[in-house]
């Protein structure tokens, strides 16, 4: 078993709305990623996966607020550190982030190299321009990006090129953990493949030591990450290896999510990422029982009144349902 690069214990964070209401978007999430491994997070939009990505950075600004839990990077607990210390010593160097909308992630009026300089100097104010440029050019070349990109403004780059530039800049300081929030969802198929390939290269060449990859398309993760977990309403509902999760999803929600995605009917995927009827619960007032109960086909009265804890099974797998694995497998077989 490799060294644990990222460990999260019972993390809880919330949003505070304009009207001062609390929205518990990440509600008790625990996870572990070992060195050289990658973990995928899947779920509908609004399930808290993007919030999880932001929460993992350990750097909170309104409307996101930290409540409780620990985030350990390579054994070092970063939750509870002073925000300025986190900014200076953790962000970018220990943990890096690739945002959902890379289209707008780069300052449009700044040359890429200037931004790289700002990133490097935020952590090492003494870094010399020449060294930074050499480093950036070397890294860009290695990742198959033309070095001319460095002297361009973001507006002059194509969508795919922008995304790859964002990835290269995010990882310029070789962070231990990379959090990627739907890095490919807005791109065409070719660009998507390029991005995935690039993420692989980053891992293979050791520029990043571990990765958390977030997407709403569960099947996409099969090709990208080692492990997969499914989130629903701020909690993890199932976790396992990519293979297990795609071919043998246990929990009713992840089962439905998998099924929905495997039937790519035209139009269906564009309008709704899942064909599971109903909408997720309101996280301002989370339901008392199982959070999926309202939409679950197999739910009983007990599901609505009793909450369910995470239940381990198999080899390191985990799911969240009142029914046993055997019962569930039985139910699915009948369909």
């Amino acid at each position: 078993m490799g060294k644990v690069m990222l460990e999260v214990r019972d993390l809880k964070t919330k949003y505070v709305t304009r009207f001062h209401e609390d929205v518990y978007a990440v509600d008790g999430v625990s996870l572990k990623i070992e060195e050289g491994k990658s973990l995928g997070v899947a779920g509908e939009s609004g399930c808290g996966k993007s919030t999880l990505a932001l929460s993992l950075m350990g750097y909170y600004f309104p409307p996101l607020h930290y409540i409780s839990g620990d985030i350990l990077i390579d054994g070092k607990n970063i939750s509870g550190l002073d925000p300025d210390v986190v900014r200076k010593t953790i962000l970018g160097t220990e943990i890096a982030y690739i945002p959902q909308a890379a289209m707008n992630a780069l300052n449009p009026t700044q040359k890429i190299i200037r931004f790289v300089e700002d990133v490097v100097r935020a952590h090492d104010p003494k870094a010399r321009k020449k060294e930074i440029r050499e480093r950036a050019e070397a890294r860009f070349a290695e990742l198959g990006l033309p070095r001319t990109v460095l002297d361009k403004h973001a507006v002059e780059l194509s969508g795919g090129m922008k995304q790859r530039t964002v990835i290269a800049v995010s990882t310029i300081l070789s962070p231990k953990v990379l959090i990627a929030d739907e890095p490919s969802s807005a791109l065409d198929v070719t660009s998507q493949k390029m991005v995935i390939k690039m993420m692989r290269e980053l891992m293979d060449k050791g520029y990043i030591k571990s990765m958390l990859f977030i997407t709403h398309e569960l099947p996409l993760l099969y090709n990208v990450t080692d492990d997969i977990m499914v989130m629903y309403a701020g909690q993890i509902v199932e976790k396992g290896t990519a293979r297990e999760m795609v071919f043998d999803p246990i929990q009713p929600y992840s089962h439905g999510l998998m099924g929905a995605n495997l039937v790519p009917e035209d139009g269906m995927r564009d309008t709704k990422p899942t064909a599971i009827p109903g909408t997720p619960p309101n996280l301002k007032r989370p339901p008392k029982g199982c959070r999926f109960a309202e939409r679950c086909r197999y739910a009983t009265e007990e599901c609505r009144t009793h909450s369910v804890a995470e239940r381990p099974f198999g080899e390191g797998r985990m799911y969240r349902c009142r029914m046993s694995v055997e019962e569930l497998r039985e139910v699915y077989k009948d369909e």
């Binding site: 932001l54 950075m57 750097y59 600004f61 900014r87 200076k88 953790i90 962000l91 970018g92 160097t93 890096a96 982030y97 945002p99 909308a101 289209m103 707008n104 992630a105 780069l106 300052n107 449009p108 009026t109 700044q110 931004f115 700002d118 990133v119 935020a122 952590h123 964002v166 800049v169 995010s170």
Partner: peptide, 19 residues
């Protein structure tokens, strides 16, 4: 979005205000 992104790369707020 670039403001959020720059923050997560550890760039100081003062610099971001400059952008």
């Amino acid at each position: 979005d670039y403001v959020k992104y720059a923050r997560f790369l550890g760039i100081k707020d003062r610099k971001i205000v400059g952008y």
